[in-house]
Design a protein around this nucleic acid. Structure first.
Lengths: 150, 150
DNA sequence: GAAACTCGGACTGATTTGGTCGCATATTCA
DNA sequence: TGAATATGCGACCAAATCAGTCCGAGTTTC
């Protein structure tokens, strides 16, 4: 129903948290989990995925933990979500190979692919450094005026 | 993982099909299902939902079927999806009541709500009358320039 | 060497999704 | 009038996905 998984939510929260503490030492998965009431083991696996995707640096051992691998201004929500949940497609029939196995005569695939691109672009524009409770975004109504004029 | 359900896909295909045959008699669920290889019973239930949402008119009995209740230019993809899958939220914690039961200190809810609005607007702009294989859409890259300038 | 971390697969229960079945009602037409 | 063909709707089931736990590693610090 067009929603993010909880894992993706957790991942975004963790990344935002790390972005707000770039100065500090590395933060452990438990530290972050406790701060938001997230199940620690669940968050641990999520952070490992973000690590493997190159978004985080990790340090093993006591005093270890995670740290952003890049400037928080350069990390998009899209990257975080994709690292956790894999590639996102709005159409349920689309696969990585790009084809629609189910209905050969599917006629909505192409228009929805465009929608998919729009959503991707929106998510790519959102950087974790910008995620504040009151983000300075251009009113979304305005943006809509630039889509589907045809 | 941010994807439409198959039911929503089917619904959009059916609506598009009906939009292309406004001139004809009412089309039965089976007619449409056969045209795209959709399980007839599954599509029947979807069409009933679209009917209850006021997007379709139905006629019982032999020679019966479905017909668009409104001008296809006035029906958005958003309406179709919402009629089938219910209200869509990008955040997994958001409920109809608007609150995040899980993590009280959830800090990404507000930024994601804005993303949600953007997606809604995009889907509302897409009318089923416009859904062609090669839709005339403004390049999505352009639209992204209007989001998140902060 | 103990403590506190990360690393990663295996596993389980809950929820959602995709689809079917059956029965009731409505309409057409012979 | 009654058979054929529609919609209307709830119940049901199997498969997939999601959310979360468990456990046994390896690493670093002290």
């Amino acid at each position: 129903m067009l929603k993010l998984t909880k894992k993706a939510d957790y991942g975004l929260m963790a990344m935002k948290h790390l972005a707000e503490h770039v100065d500090r030492e590395a933060l452990s998965a438990k530290d972050i989990a406790d701060a938001y009431g997230i199940p620690p083991q669940a968050l641990a696996k999520i952070l490992q995925r973000l690590m493997r995707a190159g978004l985080l640096e990790s340090q093993c051992g006591i005093k270890g933990g995670y740290r952003l691998a890049r400037d928080p201004h350069s990390i998009s929500a899209y990257e975080v979500i994709q690292a956790i949940d894999g590639p996102l497609f709005i159409t349920s029939c689309t696969t990585l190979r790009g084809e629609c196995g189910q209905s050969l005569r599917c006629t909505v695939r192409e228009p929805l692919r465009k929608v998919n691109q729009s959503i991707e672009e929106v998510l790519k524009r959102i950087r974790i450094a910008h995620m504040r409770e009151e983000p300075e975004m251009v009113e979304t109504k305005q943006l809509a005026d630039y889509v589907m004029i045809s």
